[in-house]
């Protein structure tokens, strides 16, 4: 029979599709953005593609945590259950709203506020997840198996990479605005290139984290 756990596994995998799978288009498009042989009009279209596709990883990454905790509880590997899980979902829902609002209100004072709240949520989450994972790896934490604790630790790592991407990419919007206004000059091209090149190691590290997490989840090795 089809049980709830199976459905949640499916949701968990589909979230990875829209996170890791969608990210390849974002990454590729960002390089097209700095190619001097692409006309400003082409690059403006690419910027729109980038903005649209980038929303998918943003949403999927937030939903991954509550879904992951549900799966862990379903397997009997996490004590977070019942009412506590409901609270996790509620908090994730609020976080999602804040994050989506930050993206849709970008450039306004309200958008800035949402973005700051989102940043603090991530910082707190990185700290909490790292502590929970390390405590579990030491044998005295929430999660019953080491592979799961390692996944939680990697999730914190991935969140750190996400922040790295956010800070390096912060300069891209203004640089692109300048490029569109002033056209292709050595200065505008250089300003555009800096964030795109610097973000590369963060993105690759994030992917490596996600790929490692998916391997841990598939193999569930006894570590």
């Amino acid at each position: 029979m089809l049980d709830a756990q199976t459905l949640w596994i499916m949701v968990h995998v589909v979230l990875l599709v829209y996170w890791l799978g969608a990210d390849i288009s974002v990454f590729y498009s960002s390089f097209q953005l700095i190619k001097t042989e692409n006309s400003p009009e082409t690059r403006a279209a690419i910027a729109k593609v980038l903005g649209f596709v980038n929303a998918f990883p943003g949403i999927a990454s937030i939903l991954m945590l509550p879904v992951g905790l549900m799966l862990a509880n379903g397997k009997g590997l996490s004590p977070i259950s019942g009412g506590w899980l409901a609270i996790v979902w509620l908090l994730a829902g609020v976080w999602l709203l804040i994050s989506v609002s930050a993206a849709s209100q970008r450039g306004t004072p309200l958008g800035k506020t949402y973005s700051n709240i989102d940043l603090w949520i991530r910082i707190v989450l990185i700290a909490v997840l790292t502590i929970a994972a390390i405590a579990s790896l030491g044998g005295g934490g929430l999660f019953a198996t080491n592979w799961l604790a390692l996944k939680v630790l990697l999730f914190a790592f991935v969140l750190v990479c996400g922040l790295g991407i956010r800070f390096t990419f912060a300069g891209l919007g203004p640089a692109f605005g300048r490029f569109m206004a002033e056209g292709s000059t050595p200065e505008t091209e250089a300003a555009l290139r800096v964030p795109v090149i610097r973000v590369k190691p963060w993105v690759l590290a994030l992917w490596a984290g996600l790929v490692a997490m998916s391997l841990l989840g598939t193999a569930q090795p006894s570590l």
């Binding site: 589909v14 829209y18 799978g21 969608a22 990210d23 288009s25 498009s29 649209f52 790929v211």
Partner: peptide, 16 residues
């Protein structure tokens, strides 16, 4: 599993 991820996920960019 990763092939599934890049099949369906990669298509978003193509489609848009």
């Amino acid at each position: 599993l990763l092939l599934f991820v890049y099949w369906l996920g990669g298509d978003i960019g193509v489609f848009y």
